[in-house]
Design a binder for these strands. Structure first.
Lengths: 295, 295
DNA sequence: CCATATTGTTTCCATAAAGGAAAAAGAGTT
DNA sequence: AACTCTTTTTCCTTTATGGAAACAATATGG
């Protein structure tokens, strides 16, 4: 029996309060969790969790054991980090959560290059639209654009800044007329992005411009596609619009006007020792985006 | 891969300086040790041991890792001891080293009773004539009669005191005459015990009596057998002669005379936390020998 | 300097253990 | 009482573990 694995799972069960949820998160079966915990209990000769079908609660002993497990596991991890620090080549697994749109666009080539440069590092990348709790889901790193204010149990590092672009297709502009100054937007089909704060005010130029349109979606990638099809004007993060702008599928308007910028943050749980592969990745991303700015 | 097991084996390898010796001691194969260490190294991505066919030496990293392994393993052990302390019933494995003659005689019934009383405790009892190093061989407990002076890394607890008996067979005494006072021994066939300090002087009565004979052996059990066969007189620990005296196969002489006593010690390595099963056994032995004295 | 003995590694194979799917069992809820 | 959600058990497949023996490597002793 792999006691360390059992201890890890026990800690997770204690944290999530459910065998099933741990099973889901770790991409394994309920029966496996059940067996691991049972054999751990048997080995100790003590019951760690009081199970009722609806609720799990830690035994008094379980509470104590949990503390000690955490300490032991942290020590094991620190030891391995320590060893890694002496290694020239970073290796190991990084579990990363990133915003879907980011992953599909700006991050993909960066990760590709990272994997080429550090062949011993494995990546497990989970793209999701809503920000996941890193500790809850056991992520080593979250990549988010100016997401929720950082909890004190996380470290946030700025990776790069992104700008927005206001895009339309050439066909659309031919049909509906040019956009030369912010106020021209009032007369256009301006798409609404669901997660944008001030949905009907686009922050362009000195003041925000009130805009309107018939389309609202929660995906900038989708909106860009609609832009390509000549349906209207989009306020699109540059990392999304970049390829379409390059290929001239869409054109940018109001390039000279002031628009807000976003900051891409790397978030990670505070730890005694940050594994080299993690600090290495963060450093790499900073360098990479310095060389490939989306501004 | 069971990392804890691998770490344990690595520590043993570092201590013994040889894969083969670890394999012997743990009753497993060289290949298994080799594989465990290799996979540990692979998991860490670092070489822990520099192997040459004749010599093993720890890498710098190996040194560091060894320290940390020890700490982790100690912590795991302490945690389990802690859990045990909350359990009503002691359980687990005790590895015991005891003097051969003791094990074959006085200890056997004591251990039998202990096992009946604590059915969850497993015993691994190794009888040997020369005292084994407990740490070296991973013993939890050593049972020795006034053995080597205790190292400071061991705790020694007195379990009981044993007396000696001077024994002969009735037939022998009929043939060679009675033994009524210490000086009578000078005229008899007195067996010599190899490990006895002053081989030719038996400490009986006020002074030691010089004795002589034709038989010398390194086993009191063997000597007793020779006594039974009427070959001479033996200076035999009572725990060995006891059954033969009870059955009248041999008789004791010079019962009133002063003879030295031996003390049976329980030796165990000093630890932060003594596992309950161990303190339980020691306590049990003290009680058992209080009820079954060999004096 | 070479045979030898000893030690770690590798290969191959049999056995044991781990892990998943699905059925079963348990317990709260409607 | 039926239903739902969760854990446990059972059964089976797959994986991995561990040993024997052959192999490779090296210090020792003659």
């Amino acid at each position: 029996m792999d006691k360390l694995k059992a201890m890890q799972l026990f800690v997770r069960v204690a944290e999530l309060g459910s065998f099933s949820r741990v099973a889901e998160q770790h991409a394994t079966s309920k029966s496996m969790i059940s067996k691991q915990i049972s054999s751990l209990e048997e080995a100790l000769g003590a019951r760690l969790l009081q199970r009722s079908t609806r609720r799990l609660r830690l035994t008094q002993l379980g509470e104590d054991y949990l503390q000690r497990c955490r300490q032991i596991l942290r020590q094991v991890e620190d030891t391995e980090t320590y060893i890694q620090e002496f290694q020239q080549v970073p290796k190991g697994l990084l579990r990363i959560n990133a915003a879907m749109a980011l992953g599909l666009t700006a991050l993909a080539p960066a990760f590709a290059e990272f994997m080429r440069r550090y062949p011993q590092v494995e990546l497990d990348i989970q793209l999701s639209d809503q920000a996941q709790d890193l500790l809850e889901h056991n992520f080593d790193l979250g990549l988010r654009v100016a997401s929720q204010p950082f909890d004190s149990s996380y470290v946030g590092k700025a990776i790069t800044r992104f700008s927005y672009s206001i895009c339309a297709s050439p066909a659309y502009l031919d049909l509906h007329g040019p956009i030369n100054q912010p106020d021209d937007l009032r007369e256009h089909q301006c798409f609404e992005y669901s997660y944008f704060r001030s949905k009907h005010l686009w922050p362009v130029g000195k003041d925000a411009v009130p805009v309107g349109g018939r389309l609202k979606a929660n995906s900038s990638v989708f909106l860009l596609d609609m832009v390509k099809q000549g349906m209207g004007v989009g306020f699109i993060p540059r990392f999304i619009s970049h390829p379409a702008l390059q290929s001239k599928e869409v054109v940018e308007v109001l390039t000279g006007e002031h628009k807000p910028e976003m900051t891409l943050y790397a978030l990670y749980p505070v730890r005694h020792f940050v594994p080299p592969r993690l600090s290495c990745l963060i450093e790499f991303l900073q360098e990479w985006f310095a060389d490939h700015p989306y501004l």
